[in-house]
Design a protein around this nucleic acid. Structure first.
Length: 571
RNA sequence: CGGGGCGUAGCUCAGCCGGGUAGAGCGCACGGUUCGGGACCGUGAGGCCGGAGGUUCAAAUCCUCUCGCCCCGACCA
């Protein structure tokens, strides 16, 4: 492909709304352009990288026994009402009506659609298991789209769904998918990690996320320094915090703490450490108000809390509600003699505390010397802790480290959640009906490509890993008005094309400086520069985008040497 | 949805506080000089100042409403 023929315009300016480097560089390199919030055009250069990503995914899905199909993007409301997700998804669903006023949505995922047609076709255990996938445009009306392709509203995703007669069979396919995902991200040359994940609104038992590690990642992940545990912080557990030293219970008494509404202020005033405090967090849920007790120096994990309570929505109670439940302004809530209408749940982090401090449910006062059972009874204890760096590993004696990642893949063992709700049954050998066991496996195409840019760039532009590069080789004529230069560059380009090399040719009538800058920006891994200077000595220049080290070779050898370099890069 | 910010040339932005001829850089067109890391000189085109209403002799500028975009938060198969 020649630059003069492709539609490609780079820019020096960073678009005003591009915040993260992948968005900035892909926009500047003429790969993507925003049409509306979270909605992007993939320009020819960007589309080439996207297509490469899709081919890698197809190859691995096919190899793992999945079969490709394509389902509708527009889906009728009735299916979503069967699983109650028409309500659960809320505003995330882009809803629309057809001319007959029937409700539809633009599919954000396809569990309902696939379960619907599978239940029409599949009757017998003999037809199971199978695994179907598609690569398709999805739409989720995110509250806050951002970061270019990393968090778009309209996006490309590979989603696969498997159907089984048993959990064992599901586990087998789940494992095959897990390995296929690892191969995909390895094929892309990305630094990634697999973590245990919270399964969220989609439901199900087991779930893993694939995270590409990057500073700009929106998810926090923890990993044990010994490598035997990694999880999304939304779900991560700890090995249990160090218990406080044993003490004899002392008498509970009230202390005046005027204006001390934060843990820091209370501990300062009373001269105790924050780990001696019990923080009482009041939450509003769809069902009932809840008070969560957590050690003063720690935070509540709201995802764990929502999943423990089995609710979809939950938020910290507002000032008014806090006053209504505790009879005190925000900052003085405590479990002692708290309103009966509030469900009291203790986090395990607070359980071992003795003689602790907590709010007195009245303004400007805290209790000290509080003890469980004697002073306050907690009916429920649960793990609701947000893990932090340095916490003990739940699997070994290592400690947990925090890092950030971009969620590029997520696989779930759904179990029978959808098959039950939608009556997707099969009959077994005895003719008895059972709901099918299901798995689903998502992988963000555009997001992975953006993640690759996050991980592979420098101050001059993108440094594509070969598998995702829009082209593998760039030939540039530095002085196209010079006949010999142009002829030599043409020859090398033609030769590479003839050899089937994935080559791009900057044949534009531009100054060398412009071409070098553009070459760095679009980040094609191998560069062949043909210019009057080196050609006078009978040479052209080969270099890698990654190290920019120049190698002079005779024009006649250029194509062969490019082949060597490609082989070295494992293309 | 709550808090904050921004909509002015194709792009990035000044001008707005304190109302009075609409600007810069980049890009684009033309001419010339250049030609190995985003050249230089000259000339030029290009704007309903997001939209609607209001105040005023006069509005990019002040007021009201509205639409869009961005940031922080809540949310996220």
């Amino acid at each position: 492909m020649r630059w003069s023929r492709i539609y490609l315009y780079t820019t020096r300016e960073i678009p005003a709304d591009a915040e993260v480097v992948s968005h900035q560089l892909m926009a500047r390199a003429g790969m993507i352009r925003k049409l509306a919030a979270g909605i992007y055009t993939y320009l020819p250069l960007g589309w080439r990288s996207i297509k490469k990503m899709m081919e890698i995914v197809r190859r691995e899905m096919d190899a793992a026994g999945a079969v490709e199909l394509s389902m509708p993007a527009i889906q009728p409301a009735e299916l979503w009402q069967e699983t109650e997700r028409w309500e659960v998804f809320g505003d995330l669903l882009l809803r629309m009506k057809d001319r007959n006023e029937r409700d539809f949505c633009f599919g954000p995922t396809h569990e309902e659609v696939i379960t619907d047609f599978v239940r029409r076709d599949v009757r017998s255990y003999r037809q199971l298991p199978f695994n179907l996938y598609q690569i398709q445009t999805k739409f989720r009306d995110e509250i806050r789209p951002r970061f270019g392709l990393m968090r778009a509203r309209e996006f490309l995703m590979k989603d696969a769904y498997s159907f089984h007669t048993s959990e064992e069979s599901l586990a087998e396919t789940y494992e095959a998918m897990r390995q296929a995902y690892c191969r995909v991200f390895e094929d892309c040359r990305l630094e990634y990690t697999m973590v245990e994940a919270a399964s969220g609104a989609i439901g199900g038992s087991g779930s893993h996320e694939f995270m590409v590690l990057a500073e700009t990642g929106e998810d926090a992940v923890v990993a044990c320094s010994n490598g035997d545990y990694a999880a999304n912080t939304e779900k991560a557990e700890t090995g249990g915090l160090e218990p406080p030293p044993a003490e004899e219970p002392i008498e509970m008494r009230e202390e005046s703490t005027p204006g001390a509404t934060t843990v820091a202020e209370v501990t300062e005033l009373l001269g105790v450490g924050p780990e001696k405090l019990v923080k009482t967090m009041l939450y509003d849920t769809d069902v009932e108000p809840v008070a969560v007790l957590v050690r003063g120096d720690r935070e509540v994990n709201e995802v764990k809390l929502a999943s423990y309570l089995g609710v979809n929505h939950l938020q910290l109670a507002g000032e008014e509600k806090v006053e209504r439940f505790t009879g005190a302004p925000v900052g003085f809530a405590g479990p002692v003699a708290l309103s009966e209408s509030v469900r009291l749940i203790g986090d395990e982090s607070a359980r071992p505390l003795v003689n602790f401090v907590c709010g007195a449910n009245k303004a400007d006062a805290h209790y000290v010397g509080v003890n469980w059972d004697r002073d306050v009874k907690v009916g429920e204890w649960a793990d609701l802790l947000l893990v932090g760096a340095g916490d003990p590993c739940p699997r070994c004696d290592g400690t947990l480290e925090l890092s950030r990642g971009i969620e590029v893949g997520h696989i779930f063992m759904l179990g029978a959640k959808y098959s039950k709700a939608m009556e997707c049954f099969y009959s077994d050998e005895k003719g008895e009906l059972h709901p099918m066991e299901m798995g689903c496996y998502g992988l963000g195409i555009g997001r992975t490509v953006a993640a690759a840019v996050e991980q592979n760039h420098d101050e001059n532009g993108i440094i594509w890993p070969v598998p995702l590069a829009p082209f593998e080789v760039l030939v540039m004529s530095l002085n196209p008005q010079d006949d010999e230069v142009r002829r030599t560059a043409d020859d090398i380009y033609d030769q590479l094309v003839a050899e089937g090399v994935d080559v791009f040719y900057d044949d534009r009538d531009e100054r060398p400086g412009v071409k070098f800058k553009d070459a760095d920006l679009i980040g094609i891994p191998i560069r062949v520069a043909v210019g009057a200077k080196s050609l006078a000595e009978g040479k052209v220049e080969l270099s890698l985008r990654r190290d920019r080290e120049k190698h002079l070779v005779a024009p006649a050898e250029a194509a062969a040497r490019v082949g060597d370099l490609l082989a070295e890069l494992g293309a």
